[in-house]
Amino acid sequence: MTGRVFIAAVLAALLAPALADEIPRAQRRSGYDAMSPQTRAMQDNESENPATLWVLDGEASWRKPEGEANKSCADCHGDASSMKGVAARYPRFDAARGKPVDIEQQINICRVERQKATPFAYESHELLAMTAFVARQSRGMPILPDKAAGAAKTVAEGQRLFTQRRGQLDLSCAQCHDDNWGRSLGGASIPQGQPNGYPLYRLEWQSVGSMRRRLRNCLSGMRAELWPVDAPEYVALEMYLMARAEGLRMESPAVRP
């Protein structure tokens, strides 16, 4: 996004009410709703959705034995149906580890602890492909945020990050995504910032990207300092976004402009 576009956003944000209110449940909309019919068709039809190329790679690596344990994901989990609904309830609070984990971290936990293999790097083709394959199995299912006792603290932390002003433009996520969704920002329309399609194929990226990449994208648009790629802030924001999106249908892997 260009600087000029963001200046326009600052003006829009200044005109908006000072206190961000959460979007009422009945008004929650997926980013899909504001897309052109062509882009929607691309998302809906699996043989036209470019993210299917990643899903197929993920499916192949699901069956491939890896690491010192020489076990494949399928050896322990069986076929893809075992992953039905899983991505719709991540990130979740991992009681054994005493911290929240997102779906990518969970995949890497299995790689390291169960397969005795090296973890996939963030944003690597392998991790995106596996995450797309796992998340694909939740397509159409409603988001079920983790309501366990341990989760509440992280959700609250995510909400704090979401409503806190940051960066050179002194904007908060909420000023765009709660207060000004549906309005336009230069050529783009501001979505509600819903997490229900990740990982997704973004036409601008010409690739599949993770939720983390999306968050980094918005942070740099705000001219805020990026947290390191493995920072807990991303998981907290994602966990808040999932709580905020409760009930929305999963679209992974979605397509976005």
Binding site: S47, E48, T52, L53, L56, D57
Partner: peptide, 8 residues
Amino acid sequence: MARALINV
């Protein structure tokens, strides 16, 4: 080889 999706 590159992955392709054909719809006929």
